[in-house]
C-alpha cells in the first residue's frame, strides 16, 4: 500500500532507468587501469587496500603517504586529512578536523576510562541495533510480500514511510512494452461567441519532441505528465471513479497539466471544457522475433470536464474572474 510519497515509478516502467549496456570491452580496461593507478601513487599502502571504505591499516589520510609520491599533486587535499590515526591513535597526532575531530591523545575506546568505556559500549550497541533494524525494515520494504511482511507490514510501513520509501524495480519484472500517449481536446468560446472544439492534441508527443536531442531532459517533459497519468490510472477504477482523496487529487492534477499546456497555445478563446484520453500502443516486436501483436492503439477516454478557476494557473484564474465580472 503506497501510503505516501514516492509511489514513484509504480509498476514496471519505473520511471528510472533500468540498466542497459555494460559491456565486455570494459573488462579489459580494468586490470590495466586500476592496478596501475594503484602502483603509481599509492604504493605505500596498496597491499592492504581493502576495497571498500575501510582503509585498513594505514589510514589513507596520512599526509605522509601522499606526500611521498606525487609532487605537485595534492592541492585538492592539501590538508591530507591531518587525522592520521594509523591502526591506533598515534600519540602526538593532532588533527582538528573539519567536522569535528578530536585533538586528543588516546583516541577510540582504548583511550577511555572504564565508566566512559561502558558508555561507549552502550552507544555502540544502540547505534548497531538501530542500523540493523533499519536495514531489516528496508529489506522487508523492498522484498516481495512474504510471511513476515504479512504479519508485521504495519511496523515496516511505520518505519519506512514517508522518508525511506523506495522502489528499485527498475524496468522489472518486465519493462513497459507500450507507449502511452496522453491526448487532450478542448471546447472553447471563439471570438464570435460560438463554441468550438479542437482536434485531439497529443501532449505526450510534445514531451517526446522536447526530450529528443536533449542531453539533459527536464523532469517537466520526462516525468510530469507521464507520472501524473500513472497516478490517475492507479487511483481510479475502470469506470473512472476515483478511490479516495488520491483519486480526486490525481484528477485535478492531470486537468491542471492539460489546461496549462493548452494555455501555451492560442486557441482563440477561453477554454470551457476539456476531455482527456490515453492512446496505448504496443511497441513493435523486435525485427528478429516472430511475435505478432495488435497494432491499433487502445484508447481510454475520460469524460468531459468543465474547467473552473481551480484548474487554471493563478494569473489566468484572476484574469478570468475579472473578465466574468
Amino acid at each position: 500500500m503506497g501510503t505516501g510519497r514516492m509511489d514513484s515509478f509504480e509498476r514496471e516502467d519505473a520511471g528510472a532507468g533500468g540498466p542497459s549496456p555494460g559491456n565486455a570491452p570494459v573488462r579489459d580496461s580494468v586490470p590495466e587501469h586500476l592496478p596501475r593507478q594503484t602502483r603509481q601513487t599509492a604504493q605505500p599502502w596498496s597491499p592492504s587496500e581493502p576495497g571498500s571504505p575501510e582503509p585498513g591499516s594505514p589510514e589513507p589520510g596520512s599526509p605522509a603517504g601522499s606526500g611521498s609520491s606525487s609532487g605537485p599533486g595534492h592541492r585538492l587535499q592539501p590538508a591530507g586529512p591531518p587525522q592520521a590515526p594509523a591502526p591506533l591513535g598515534r600519540p602526538g597526532d593532532e588533527g582538528p578536523l573539519g567536522d569535528g575531530d578530536s585533538g586528543s591523545r588516546g583516541r577510540g575506546i582504548a583511550g577511555l576510562s572504564l565508566p566512559y568505556q561502558v558508555a561507549a559500549a552502550l552507544s555502540l550497541a544502540l547505534i548497531g541495533a538501530l542500523a540493523c533494524v533499519h536495514l531489516g525494515m528496508v529489506f522487508l520494504h523492498v522484498a516481495p510480500s512474504n510471511t513476515v511482511t504479512k504479519q508485521h507490514g504495519e511496523a515496516v510501513d511505520w518505519w519506512v514511510y514517508p522518508e525511506f520509501e523506495q522502489n528499485w524495480k527498475l524496468f522489472a519484472p518486465n519493462p513497459l512494452q507500450q507507449n502511452v500517449a496522453v491526448q487532450v481536446r478542448a471546447e472553447y468560446t471563439a471570438a464570435d461567441g460560438s463554441r468550438r472544439s479542437t482536434d485531439w492534441i497529443d501532449l505526450s508527443a510534445e514531451d517526446g519532441a522536447a526530450i529528443q536531442g536533449s542531453l539533459l531532459p527536464s523532469h517537466v517533459h520526462q516525468n510530469m505528465l507521464r507520472r501524473a497519468w500513472d497516478f490517475y490510472v492507479t487511483s481510479h477504477d475502470g469506470d473512472n471513479r476515483p478511490n479516495g482523496v488520491r483519486g480526486q487529487l490525481s484528477e485535478r492534477y492531470v486537468r491542471r497539466i492539460a489546461v496549462a499546456r493548452l494555455m501555451e497555445r492560442d486557441l482563440g478563446g477561453p477554454v470551457e471544457r476539456i476531455q482527456l484520453r490515453s492512446a496505448t500502443s504496443a511497441v513493435d516486436p523486435p525485427g528478429w522475433s516472430d511475435e505478432k501483436i495488435e497494432v491499433k492503439p487502445v484508447h481510454r477516454v475520460l469524460p468531459w470536464w468543465t474547467i473552473t478557476a481551480a484548474d487554471l494557473p493563478e494569473d489566468a484564474a484572476r484574469d478570468r474572474a475579472e473578465a466574468e465580472r
Binding site: 514516492m6 515509478f9 520511471g15 528510472a16 516525468n223 492534477y253
Partner: peptide, 8 residues
C-alpha cells in the same frame, strides 16, 4: 510525482 529513481 515529479521524481524518478534518481530523485529517490
Amino acid at each position: 510525482f515529479m521524481g524518478d529513481g534518481g530523485d529517490n
